[in-house]
Design a protein around this nucleic acid. Structure first.
Lengths: 224, 224
DNA sequence: CGACTTTTAGAACCTGGTACTAACCGCTAG
DNA sequence: CTAGCGGTTAGTACCAGGTTCTAAAAGTCG
């Protein structure tokens, strides 16, 4: 029972027990999703039927299906890029009062050298939330004041909490404070001034002097 | 000769002349890249051979090849998403002095309702440039002060100009001012404080108190 | 009419599989 | 010893969605 494993061990990369082989299979496939069963037989030194049985058991679709899924995913990603209205998942929202969003730092958000999140992603989460929390037709960031308290690393979950500081529905501007945490630790702080439409026109937005506003309005016309 | 076109016209969507059919084919395929030849025969009312000859002539690969290409594209997009080190195209860069980048506002950058660019994209361009202009191993945004002077609209080209304000290579922090323009008009202004590695350690970064730093350092260890 | 382009048809073949049947190997329990 | 079982392998039929090639029919023009 003990002592002797199965098969010979000396030759090194010989056939693995089922469990390990299947794990290796998963690794190989998501390392290179474009691998065919035939190639896998060479890698794992088992028959093509075994490969296929393994895929069945593991619920891994065939190559073509995998490619189709990837293609579809990337296709409606492009289609719905505009649908990504918000960076981070908003998990709580009390309009004109407060909001919470959660954002996981993934590969694409970090500097590859240091694995530290780029500032603009952290800002994007906070900014999205600050805009979302404002209960208005149009809400635009007018200005902001940011402190990146400590670097945020790959894999960390960043939880942003926004609080509307100014009396709601009043002026054309709202103050929103956003604090972002990883666990207990505050990692980012931002004070936003958000322009809100209210009843006023968007032309009231911004800090530009009057003649600029007209220019802007003109440009808007020529562009639409 | 004249008057009579080819075939009967009365029935409406009848077979088109070759040229137009091929154009329609292109439209149909890039409207829905997942369409099979068989489906196309139904759409265009020609035989499957004609469809295939058309694809040949137009250099359009078969369905499976199309899906594969899409999958591959999306795959190495994911792989090289880290390569998108910078938002906007940097067209001029004098390290530790100044830099210019250009960024065109596209569909995916605007609020669909208003066609106005989301603040964080404008920030991302400025932030990327501010970081890029710093001639250091590691450069991280420590804090920033932003003014969104006027809304930026779909299709506008935003040109960001960064100027390093602090004496270069000196302290652990650099001041960078970024001004963004559409044409002559200033649309955004940001003052960044960028943490730079210099000879110091990244642990020196941030405004967190000492015990926080250890925590951060620990986390870094557990994560690598 | 004959020459030419365009369209259609059909058969053979390809890849990368699925689905199913059958056999074999090594081990163990009765 | 033998039957049973998990795991593996082999082989065949079949499929989608094509390619490649040959050949013929249909429409077009001078």
């Amino acid at each position: 029972m003990f002592g002797e494993h199965r098969h010979k061990e000396e030759t090194g990369i010989e056939r693995l027990p089922k469990r390990q082989r299947q794990q290796r299979l998963v690794e190989l496939i998501d390392e290179n999703p474009f691998v065919t069963d035939r190639e896998l037989t060479r890698r794992l030194k088992v028959s093509i039927q075994t490969i296929r049985l393994d895929r069945m058991e593991l619920g891994i679709p065939e190559l073509r299906e995998r490619m189709k899924l990837m293609a579809e995913r990337s296709y409606d990603q492009v289609r719905s890029l505009a649908a990504e209205e918000v960076i981070g998942d908003i998990i709580d929202l009390q309009l004109d009062r407060s909001g919470i969003s959660i954002f996981e730092i993934r590969e694409e958000h970090v500097f590859s050298r240091t694995q530290i999140a780029r500032g603009h992603h952290i800002f994007a989460q906070a900014n999205s939330l600050a805009v979302a929390v404002i209960n208005d037709e149009i809400a635009l960031t007018a200005s902001a004041d940011l402190r990146f308290v400590r670097p945020i690393h790959l894999g960390e979950k960043c939880i942003a909490k926004a609080y509307v500081r100014s009396s709601p529905g009043k002026a054309g501007r709202a103050k929103v404070e956003v604090l972002s945490y990883v666990g207990e630790e505050m990692v980012f702080q931002g004070n936003f001034i958000i322009y809100r439409s209210d009843d006023k026109k968007p032309a009231d937005y911004g800090l530009a002097p009057p003649e600029r506003q007209e220019q802007a309005a003109n440009e808007e016309d020529t562009r639409t």
